[in-house]
Nucleic acid binder design. Structure first.
Length: 275
DNA sequence: AATAGGCCCAACCGCGACGGT
DNA sequence: AACCGTCGCGGTTGGGCCTAT
């Protein structure tokens, strides 16, 4: 798989963008759009590589970008979504209108991660003492750090997480229609098209639909795990609805669904009977 | 007042995915 | 099937700003 060099470095400007460059880029895109980033800088009269232009546009110049500090609700949403999506910043950004993946990544690394880690530390020892009933608890920081691609375990963010309604919109499941095309990130805040597989997207959506949509108390409520019953009505986590989703999406791969279902349940310390 | 260290954020880099040829 | 071009993503970096000493 050949890959074109990012750009001809020679003669191309790097570093911070000037007001003039911003104006050139904005004017060009407003007039012509951006069908081809690679060709754009030349056409727009910019001494930048296309990649740099795309980044500047998507992360800074886009008109729909919301500037300013993150609200507590947005921060809580990021924490929630990160528990489900891991470091899939674009996926998180797609559910936070006006925010970019870069911005979210930055705020996670500089503020939220620390906050989550801090909260998890004292709670962890507390949980060992209490043991019951089952609560959403933290695992070791090591696990948290080394499994970023998997749904994160639920940290004890109850204080923040149980806060008022979050502002993301629950979307129709991407596979609930007959469409097989990717409908991830139908939220209009990004021009990015996904490179994730359909299975990944569907999985994310199912996880989000069932983990986040449930209700806000989910994140702070005590969860019971009735191991001996087949009625998996565990708090608000409706496994039956997960299964329904699964039925609706018979084309999806079994492996990822159950694998993720169990890993998520495991992270939430729920007991599931063998299937 | 000086400065060291931390924080924040825009920008860059390298990689994989994907479509076209 | 192999190659090429383009794009988007996540990780990382660099520098300005802020704060504590």
């Amino acid at each position: 798989m050949g890959r074109a060099p990012c750009c001809e470095k020679l003669g191309l400007k790097r570093g911070p963008w000037s007001k003039e460059e911003d104006d050139l880029l904005i004017n060009y895109i407003n007039k012509h759009g951006h069908p081809n980033w690679r060709a754009l800088p030349k056409l727009a009269g910019l001494l930048r590589c296309g990649k740099s232009c795309r980044l500047r546009w998507t992360n800074y110049l886009r008109p729909d970008i919301k500037r300013g500090n993150f609200t507590p609700e947005e921060e809580n949403t990021i924490i929630k979504l990160h528990q489900v999506l891991g470091n899939r910043w674009s996926g998180i950004a797609a559910r936070l209108p006006g925010r970019t993946d870069n911005e979210i990544k930055n705020i996670w690394h500089t503020r939220l991660k620390k906050r989550v880690d801090d909260k998890s530390q004292p709670q962890e020892t507390q949980d060992i003492q209490d043991q019951q009933p089952m609560e959403i608890t933290s695992k070791s920081e090591e696990n948290f750090e080394t499994h970023s691609s998997e749904p994160e375990n639920s940290k004890d963010n109850s204080e923040e997480i149980s806060s008022p309604k979050t502002n993301f919109q629950i979307q129709e499941h991407p596979n609930s229609s007959s469409s097989t095309s990717s409908s991830r990130d139908s939220c209009s805040n990004t021009t990015a098209t996904s490179t994730s597989s359909l299975a990944d997207e569907s999985r994310d959506q199912i996880m989000l639909d069932n983990l986040i949509e449930v209700d806000d108390n989910f994140w702070s409520e005590v969860l019971w795990a009735p191991a001996e019953t087949n009625d998996y009505n565990v708090s608000d986590l409706s496994l039956s609805s997960l299964e329904e989703n699964y039925e609706l999406n018979s084309s999806l791969n079994d492996y990822w669904f159950w694998d993720d279902l169990f890993s998520t349940a495991n992270e939430l310390m729920l007991e599931l009977p063998e299937l």
